[in-house]
């Protein structure tokens, strides 16, 4: 009997998940998150509260002049929203990715199913976006309660936060899938995340930096996110063009996505 006789008709693809397998991957990550979301939800309110009170109210009390006429608290809240998005996006794109390749090997189990590398990266990235979005909404709520939102454009902040998240999470997925040990994660935080948080305009305007550092801030995705968020919550014009910011962040996300997808393929299909 020939091989062709063994061919059964392809199985019908039913439901949303059948047509978009990436959703099944997202669903797995959400099911796994269900175990820890309570503590996560608590800290996603606590973290903004502590930072707003500590930096905004505490440090702000010594910054009488504000920044460019804006009270210090109002100045740093949008920066903190953007930098928190960065921290969560990077945190969720490093250890969990290493875990799924090196320690628990979830990705290899997924690769044995009809899922393609793009579904596996895409579903996990979608979960990272979900995490960043929910935490930012909590932050935004706290920020609103402190009266730091001055424009209806603040409603656009969640979208901006998603853009920041994809612009860093996608390239960090590529990074995390290329390294074999979490020592590299520590280096990523030390040499990229912490300097960005400190010098990309979150706590003070980048104009106060020497020219070389200022250009490093301009290159970092965070500065573009901070500038956009600040424009949105204060209702002021950003320091650079809005389409320019959006395209720059989208470019980081797009190139990161291509790199991550090809790196995942290299690891999963050998």
């Amino acid at each position: 009997m020939s091989l062709a006789d063994a061919v059964a008709p392809p199985r019908p693809k039913t439901g949303l998940v059948g047509r978009f397998p990436v959703l099944a991957v997202l669903e797995y990550h959400l099911v796994a998150y269900r175990r820890t979301w309570r503590s996560g939800a608590f800290s996603s309110f606590l973290l903004p509260l502590l930072t707003v009170v500590g930096f905004g109210v505490g440090v702000g009390a010594y910054v009488d002049a504000g920044v460019g006429g804006v009270p210090y608290l109002d100045f740093i809240v949008p920066g903190l929203i953007a930098s928190t998005a960065l921290q969560i996006a990077v945190g969720e794109s490093t250890w969990p990715v290493l875990r799924n390749f090196e320690w628990v090997k979830i990705y290899f189990g997924q690769a044995a199913t009809p899922l393609r590398a793009a579904d596996i990266v895409g579903g996990h990235l979608a979960f990272v976006l979900f995490r960043v979005l929910t935490s930012s909404l909590a932050f935004l709520l706290v920020a609103g309660l402190f009266g730091t939102l001055h424009s209806a454009w603040a409603l656009a902040t969640p979208l901006l936060v998603l853009l920041i998240a994809i612009s860093v999470a996608a390239p960090v997925f590529a990074f995390s899938s290329a390294v074999r040990s979490d020592n590299y994660v520590a280096m990523l935080f030390r040499f990229a995340v912490i300097p960005m948080t400190l010098f990309a305009g979150v706590f003070f305007p980048v104009e106060s930096l020497p020219v070389v550092l200022r250009w490093l801030a301009y290159v970092s995705p965070l500065w573009h996110g901070v500038d956009l968020c600040r424009a949105a919550t204060l209702g002021l014009a950003p320091a650079w063009s809005v389409p320019g910011h959006l395209l720059y962040l989208a470019a980081w996300g797009f190139v990161g996505w291509l790199l991550a997808r090809s790196q995942f393929r290299r690891r999963l299909v050998i």
């Binding site: 397998p21 099944a24 991957v25 797995y28 997924q110 199913t113």
Partner: peptide, 16 residues
């Protein structure tokens, strides 16, 4: 971290 059952059901979803 997942239960035995969740391991099976989440996996089944990958097959639609």
């Amino acid at each position: 971290e997942l239960t035995v059952q969740e391991n099976l059901t989440t996996y089944a979803r990958y097959f639609g």
